[in-house]
Amino acid sequence: ATNIVGKVKWYNSTKNFGFIEQDNGGKDVFVHKSAVDAAGLHSLEEGQDVIFDLEEKQGKAYAVNLRIK
């Protein structure tokens, strides 16, 4: 899925991951530091509006192509 809109539920910059809540009511999506770095960001803030693509690997969904809304 592409261009999914959501809000950062939480992001832990020490542990380098967090979760994004989808605006469409879907399951929360894992986001890793690598996606944050690829977006040219240092971190994510709770409540921040983002747009992302959804990829699945080994049955787990995660956010890629992250951008600030």
Rank of each mutant, 00 (worst) to 15 (best):
A1N: 14
A1F: 12
A1M: 08
A1L: 12
A1I: 13
T2K: 07
N3R: 08
N3K: 11
I4E: 07
I4H: 05
V5E: 14
V5K: 14
G6L: 01
G6D: 00
G6C: 01
K7N: 05
K7F: 09
K7S: 07
V8N: 01
V8F: 03
K9H: 04
K9V: 06
K9L: 11
K9Q: 03
W10G: 02
W10I: 04
W10D: 02
W10R: 04
N12Y: 10
S13F: 14
S13C: 04
S13W: 05
T14Q: 14
T14C: 05
T14L: 15
T14R: 11
K15H: 10
K15Y: 14
K15L: 11
N16Y: 10
N16G: 12
N16A: 11
N16R: 12
N16K: 15
F17N: 02
F17M: 10
G18W: 02
G18V: 01
G18Y: 02
G18R: 00
G18C: 02
F19C: 03
F19W: 11
F19P: 00
F19K: 03
I20E: 00
I20F: 07
E21C: 04
Q22M: 13
D23K: 13
D23L: 08
D23F: 14
D23Y: 15
N24T: 10
N24A: 14
G25V: 06
G25H: 07
G25W: 12
G26H: 10
G26C: 05
K27Y: 11
K27Q: 15
K27R: 12
K27F: 09
K27W: 10
K27H: 13
K27S: 06
D28T: 06
D28M: 11
V29D: 01
V29A: 06
V29I: 15
F30L: 05
F30Y: 10
V31N: 00
V31D: 00
V31H: 00
H32E: 03
H32Y: 08
H32A: 06
H32C: 03
K33W: 10
K33F: 09
K33V: 13
S34N: 14
S34F: 14
A35Q: 06
V36D: 00
V36L: 13
A38E: 15
A38Q: 10
A38S: 12
A39C: 03
A39H: 03
A39P: 02
G40H: 09
G40L: 07
G40E: 08
G40V: 05
G40R: 12
G40I: 05
H42L: 12
H42G: 10
S43F: 14
S43A: 12
S43L: 15
S43Y: 13
L44A: 02
E45C: 04
E45P: 13
E46M: 09
G47H: 12
Q48D: 15
Q48I: 10
Q48W: 13
D49W: 13
D49M: 09
D49S: 09
D49N: 15
V50W: 02
V50L: 11
I51N: 07
I51D: 04
F52T: 02
F52A: 03
F52L: 03
F52P: 00
D53I: 04
D53E: 04
D53A: 05
D53G: 04
L54N: 05
L54W: 10
L54K: 14
L54D: 01
L54S: 06
E55N: 14
E55G: 07
E56H: 13
K57R: 07
K57Y: 11
Q58K: 12
Q58F: 07
Q58E: 13
G59H: 15
K60Q: 11
A61E: 10
A61V: 14
A61M: 14
Y62R: 10
A63Y: 00
A63V: 09
A63M: 02
A63H: 00
V64M: 14
V64K: 13
N65D: 04
N65H: 13
N65M: 05
N65L: 05
N65P: 00
N65I: 03
N65F: 06
N65S: 08
L66K: 00
L66G: 00
L66W: 00
R67I: 13
R67V: 08
R67A: 04
I68D: 09
K69L: 07
